[in-house]
């Protein structure tokens, strides 16, 4: 009995603490818009409405893992980053390499971070996070829902003005 009561108290404490942390997150200075232009050759830059996503999500950790002072959601991250150890790195690019997934990256893992060995590169970090959540909540998931193709993009995908002309011998066997 005493134990249950105590647990309840601790539970409430944690709840209170997390809402305080959540508030502190929302009190942080953050940009309302972020321009993402890593794919700028094939697509126009995406202007990401950060403010809207702050309103729509429960907390910063929904997207930023444990890096903003709000409680960690992923149980694997939580094994080390149990809420005490928030980080200064908030920008995705600070951890997720903007370069291509190179053999070198994989061959020289930073071994002091053994749990960081299978980290997606920046392009994948965005897409996995965004599309993963959009699939769950029914947000837009088509490529062009977020990205407007450039002419180079149309050429690459053979779309728009580069659409193949229909010929009798169109496809293989």
């Amino acid at each position: 009995m005493v134990n249950a009561g105590k647990q309840l108290m601790v539970g409430l404490g944690v709840l209170l603490l997390s809402s305080v942390l959540a508030i502190s997150c929302y009190a942080m200075d953050y940009p309302d818009e972020v321009e993402i232009d890593v794919l700028a050759n094939l697509y126009e830059a995406v202007v990401f409405d950060h403010a809207m996503h702050v309103d729509l999500t429960e907390g910063c950790a929904d997207c930023h893992h444990h890096t903003t002072g709000t409680p960690v959601l992923n149980e694997y991250c939580a094994k080390c980053h149990d809420g005490k150890e928030e980080m200064d790195w908030v920008s995705c690019q600070d951890c997720h390499s903007a370069g291509p997934v190179s053999a070198e990256n994989l061959n020289n893992p930073k071994t002091d971070f053994i749990y960081h060995n299978d980290k997606p590169n920046l392009k994948a970090a965005y897409h996995l996070n965004c599309i993963g959540c959009h699939q769950e909540v029914g947000g837009p998931t088509g490529c062009e829902d977020c990205h407007a193709k450039t002419e180079a993009g149309d050429e690459f995908y053979r779309s728009g003005e580069f659409t193949p002309k229909k010929s009798a011998d169109s496809s293989g066997h």
Binding site: P100, V101, S102, A103, E104, L106, N107, D118, P120, N121, K123, A124, H127, L128, I131, C143
Partner: peptide, 23 residues
């Protein structure tokens, strides 16, 4: 030593390139 074109192009990093043993 560079990853294949398809691997590099994938927005979701469906494919991870590296030594077979590590992967």
């Amino acid at each position: 030593g560079r990853p294949p074109a398809c691997v590099e192009s994938c927005p979701q990093q469906v494919m991870t390139f590296g030594k077979r043993n590590d992967l």
